[in-house]
């Protein structure tokens, strides 16, 4: 806060103002928010992004002073490391980055919101890159091919499973901003050329149900906006 340019009044502190004047921080761009964490007393959790040395870094932050807030932040931070494949920054370990140096922002945002649904203390381990698909009636799995490319396989080769493989390709393109590869048609690639198995495992369910994921995002974006009575 630039107090010279913006003289701030002398708080009388009738409503506790002195306790919070100028407490908001410059944390960069807030890219996502869980406005009401049902696992931790309804606090909000923000995901912030800053660039250092042309490398995007992420920070989980809350302004809540609740006694469990800092523990919750640390749990979500650890979950992002374990389940999304992020790493602590060397210089500021509370900030996280990918080894590849790319942001993968859309995937990180989706993953962050899903991780906020975990109860604090729930065991953390990377999700497997294999999942049963109801419509395919078999397991679908993802294999790393190098250079950021992954091939999606169905255990059973049926018409419906082939369709579902294609649907999963499209899902990853939308959810993780990956590129669909022309040959083989069942492959996707991260433009960074890096390996991100944890991220794909975490978001495989979302990619399988991409319409529901998009609808959930649209619904969340509309919540909290005041509309005039004429539009209610």
């Amino acid at each position: 806060m630039n107090q010279e340019a913006w003289p701030i009044f002398e708080p009388r502190n009738l409503i506790g103002v002195s306790d919070f004047v100028g407490k908001t921080l410059d944390l960069g761009k807030r890219v996502e928010i869980q406005p009401m964490d049902t696992q931790c007393h309804g606090i909000s959790l923000g995901l912030y992004r800053q660039e250092w040395d042309e490398c995007p870094h992420y920070l989980v932050h809350t302004y809540s002073g609740h006694e469990q807030a800092s523990g919750r932040m640390e749990y979500i931070r650890q979950a992002m490391i374990t389940m999304l494949g992020l790493h602590a920054s060397e210089h500021q370990p509370e900030w996280l980055r990918f080894h590849c140096g790319h942001s993968h922002e859309k995937a990180v945002r989706r993953g962050f919101l899903d991780l906020c649904k975990l109860e604090t203390g729930a065991p953390l381990q990377p999700k497997p890159c294999t999942a049963f698909d109801k419509k395919a009636d078999c397991e679908l799995s993802i294999r790393y091919q190098g250079d950021g490319s992954y091939v999606i396989d169905a255990v059973a080769e049926t018409d419906s499973s082939l369709k579902r493989v294609q649907a999963l390709v499209r899902g990853f393109v939308k959810v993780c901003e990956m590129e669909a590869i022309e040959s083989p048609v069942s492959a996707v690639r991260f433009p960074c050329g890096g390996e991100h198995a944890s991220l794909l495992g975490m978001l495989m369910f979302r990619a399988q149900n991409v319409r529901a994921a998009m609808a959930e995002e649209a619904n969340a974006a509309g919540r909290g906006s005041l509309v005039p009575p004429s539009q209610q």
Binding site: G16, F20, T24, I43, Y63
Partner: peptide
């Protein structure tokens, strides 16, 4: 009109 946000709500409880 309002400039309240969920983060400001957290800040001041």
């Amino acid at each position: 009109t309002s400039v309240a946000t969920v983060e400001l709500m957290d800040l001041v409880d």
